[in-house]
Design a protein around this nucleic acid. Sequence first.
DNA 1: AAAAACTGTATCCGTTGGACACAGTGTACG
DNA 2: CGTACACTGTGTCCAACGGATACAGTTTTT
Lengths: 232, 232
Amino acid sequence: MATETTAITLLWEQPAAPKRGPKPTLSLDTIATAGIEIADADGLAALTMQRVAERLGVTKMALYRYVPGKVELVALMVDLAIGEPPPPAAVAGGWRQTLDSWARQMYDRFRAHPWALEATVGARAFGPNELGWLEQATAALAGTGLAGSEILDTAATLAGHARVIAQQAAGTPAGAPEQAMGDAMGAMLAGREERFPTLSAALAEPAGKDQALDFGLRCILDGVELLISRLN
Amino acid sequence: MATETTAITLLWEQPAAPKRGPKPTLSLDTIATAGIEIADADGLAALTMQRVAERLGVTKMALYRYVPGKVELVALMVDLAIGEPPPPAAVAGGWRQTLDSWARQMYDRFRAHPWALEATVGARAFGPNELGWLEQATAALAGTGLAGSEILDTAATLAGHARVIAQQAAGTPAGAPEQAMGDAMGAMLAGREERFPTLSAALAEPAGKDQALDFGLRCILDGVELLISRLN
DNA sequence: AAAAACTGTATCCGTTGGACACAGTGTACG
DNA sequence: CGTACACTGTGTCCAACGGATACAGTTTTT
């Protein structure tokens, strides 16, 4: 049985440069970068092995010398697009400010690469960068007395919030995603106010500009803070 | 210009039965149900117009008489699978218990139809059921004094948490998703403990069985409760 | 110099979503 | 009562996709 290159292998150990034969014209990095550029511009649906190859000036099949298949390519793209985690927290501000900033930066990454949201649902392999982000979050909470599982749950909740809000914002042209979302919903609700009374009323209020990210972060961090304060 | 049937039209107004010509053998409901069964069994990737047609005993192209394309079919499937929102809250327990139960039921729905998670990323049309769920959540918070945008943000945060935890649980065989997740991460972390020290330590602790959903809900609701209490 | 290892390429295939023309069927109107 | 029309389901066709396989060219080792 040949050495079956899996997504995990590809993500975690960069393949050794070959000793014999012609030098490769491509690399995992250049391929993943090309894929990211396509997905950034035209979305994940437009990501085709053909288009990636064209952008790199090679044939489609040349890519398969580096990447076993499309799913592995996307996994590489995700880890590269998410990027290295933000530098370890400045000690000032404590865990709360660290996590707040952490979640906001994650939100920014997802806003910059909306397709990464689609690509990271379901069972998948985690890359080094993704675990690096997680490491930063757990480090921020290490001294708080929370149990390990609580720390992980906190990170998951925060990351989830950043994801969901980024997801809402994605697909709206630009500028004021929250308002655009409200407008779209309002259009569907028009003429059906009696069926969705409180929802219509809530949407009718002026939507004091995009604050969904702030709001959720504050709630979650308040809850975590309450939990920590009860430990001492 | 012909009447271009869009996903929104399909979701919100059931098409009028034709007056002339042979009676349709299918309906939007039977088609969507067949699609749901396939996606439940084999995942969204296995959902093919061909397979849906086979299950219904018709040709692939027959489906296009009812549904303009695959994306619209998936939109119908999502709204049908999410289902009607839970009945309006029992008054006992107040908004907190209502929202807690609301989020848990949403989690259950997503667990029952994991493919719905993949299908509801990115810009999409909301169906009546989906807005019905949102209406229930806003109704629960209507009397609390929160602003409309805060109410919507709370609902979004809670729904997001339910989504994220369901997403983590999806893909793992069954039984103990949280532990399976930890095991998978642990395998990747093996031999790299010095690179991810706190994360490894957190994972090494015994992972008191699946509590991620509870934990996040408690944190979020604590935060909302704190916000409400400050209003009065 | 020759063999071995590795690259990129050309060609082929099954499956997918969808376009289009057509034949069968049932209702409404003359 | 018959005919025209509207609507259904079907058969055929197509481009694009991911991927398999076989092959030709290039560089290093022996």
